[in-house]
Amino acid sequence: MNKRFQGTENYVATPDLMLAVNAAITLQRPLLIKGEPGTGKTMLAEEVAAALNMPLIQWHIKSTTKAQQGLYEYDAVSRLRDSQLGDSKVKDIANYIVKGVLWQAFEQTEPGVVLIDEIDKADIEFPNDLLRELDRMEFHVYETRETIRAVKRPLVIITSNNEKELPDAFLRRCFFHYIKFPDRDTMAQIVNVHYPTLKKDLLKEALEVFFGLRDVPGLKKKPSTSELIDWLKLLVAEDIPPEALRSKDQKVSVPPLHGALLKNEQDVHLFERLVFMARNNR
């Protein structure tokens, strides 16, 4: 596996992120990605898979997800039902083992990308339960007494939103990368990738408003990249002229379609109050 990830047409990767991905590919260790919501953590796995032409297997974690579910589950109810019907399948327990995400990934003859999304949503012990499985890429199926081993070690990408801390033993086995919020230049690049035809002056004004909004103190949720992209989409769709965004000189105003940027009524309220205060000061 000596492919290298260089970013894609749809995804702007910073050099340090590319290096982290390549280190994880080369050494076949999991890569843990953290960062503000909306900085493209989940998208990274999709883009890596697309760029390196590897199949992507996703595992989205919920608060009720158990580590075992990623390996396999024993479907006792079906077996019980089949036994009532006298189905001959019943004799072989292997017919009732349902393969989980990791099992499917281990079976692939070509190395794939496994995305374990939002690992911090799960129970606090969840990462510990997967230590050996991710390290050795093998596990034991108790019911059929067989050991499943990865044919080709997949690239495991794990994302976390920092809701819970991850145990040290788990962290030690991963590469780690924190996706920093993009600066103005990177942001312009990202927007370019999404809207190549966007007018230059509109983009400039929009970024101005956007970063200004991110600097407003006390916002519950700062607008992120994905919100900026959505907002621009709306601006383009509504055909808002760049001048409409530039209102600082005459009067301070709420930017048009701000609902795409601020997702929280307290934030909108706070913002409107600030704008109101700014106006009164003039």
């Binding site: 050099p15 340090d16 290096l19 982290a20 390549n22 050494l27 040290d168 962290l171 030690r172 780690f176």
Partner: peptide, 27 residues
């Protein structure tokens, strides 16, 4: 191991990123 496997070239920038991604696990 990563250095031996040639993940990075001979640049201090690359080394900085690699050292950070492999040694530091919390932002």
């Amino acid at each position: 191991e990563a250095m031996k496997a040639g993940v990075i070239g001979h640049s201090i920038d690359d080394f900085y990123f690699l050292a950070r991604t492999s040694l530091v696990k919390d932002e």
